[in-house]
Computed example of a mutant assay.
Amino acid sequence: MNGSRIAAVGHYQPARILTNEDLAALVDTSDEWITSRVGIRTRHIAGPDEPVDELAGHAAAKALATAGLAPDDIDIDLVLVATSTAVDRSPNMAARVAHRLGIPSPAAMDVNVVCAGFTHALATADHAVRAGAATRVLVIGADKMSDVTDWTDRTTCVLVGDGAGAAVVEAAAPGEAPGIGPVLWGSVPEMGHAVRIEGTPARFAQEGQSVYRWATTRLPAIARQACERAGLTPEELAGVVLHQANLRIIEPLAQKIGAVNAVVARDVVDSGNTSAASIPLALSKLVERGEIGTGDPVLLFGFGGNLSYAGQVVRCP
């Protein structure tokens, strides 16, 4: 097979916006404390009647519409949903999204690699196309972090938001260069405890300083290797979309990668940390605003839970 490309992207966020001032009424914090430490000003929070598959379905519907695919002619071989906040074990989010959208008989799988879930799922879609197992794949990152947040813990509740982003991945045309570059992925299992969602009820917790040091010291070299696998230098990138964890991680990491000419996504300021949704959500917004153009090379790089990471260079749809 000739590789794959992203044909279209889409995103969705719940209507309710939670500001730093709103949080200051819940816990001992302030707008200055939050912005100085993580750079977040607002985040979107889903209601109790907005499950993960609904968020995912809205983002996917937007991506499909942008790709020119109507509900009655959706030809999707595979649906992948990256999420770590699914409540039920079965049916999975992918099957529920396929049902919502009326997609007939796709393979349907969830991918739980937490904050790096979307880039892992995108690589899986690319591999499926290259192997001839699929010609069109719907890839979604969706998380409802508000469901797993301790709203009395000021160190974590100020970080999270809810949302979804999606991409339609298609086989590249004969003779067309692949639009999704080789993935570079891995993990640091011995540090997996540094970011976790565990317990009953499940709650999000992290060792913030450990994650910060690891991300800002170890990841720049790994991200540059992802560029090398795509045959590019960081200076040739038009965009950089890192996992939107913390502005104080994003800015130094982008600088150390050396992408001096790239637009750097900073959606964390308005959306908070949306886990697996953060990369497709930020990418879709950059595309929608015209900050990156069709064919532009963009580095996507996810990192976080399990201390997993995955990155690849894609061509903007």
Rank of each mutant, 00 (worst) to 15 (best):
A310T: 03
T216D: 08
P14I: 10
A59F: 06
A164S: 08
P189V: 08
A108I: 07
T124W: 09
T200K: 12
E21A: 14
A123P: 05
T135D: 15
C316E: 04
D49E: 15
G39S: 06
T149M: 06
S30Y: 12
D75I: 05
D267L: 05
G302Y: 00
C227H: 01
L80D: 08
D72E: 14
R203E: 11
R289C: 02
A123N: 08
D296N: 08
T124Q: 13
A8Y: 10
A194R: 01
Q13F: 15
P189C: 09
I40G: 00
I222R: 13
T85S: 08
V168E: 04
N273H: 08
V260R: 15
P178D: 07
Q206W: 02
R266N: 06
Q255E: 15
E190K: 15
A173M: 13
A116R: 02
P252W: 07
G3V: 14
R229P: 01
V9L: 11
D75L: 09
A107E: 12
L219P: 01
S187Q: 11
V52T: 15
G181H: 06
G10L: 02
V52D: 05
L283Y: 01
P106S: 14
V287D: 03
T42S: 15
P280I: 09
V79I: 13
K285Q: 13
G141E: 12
T85N: 08
D153Y: 06
P182I: 06
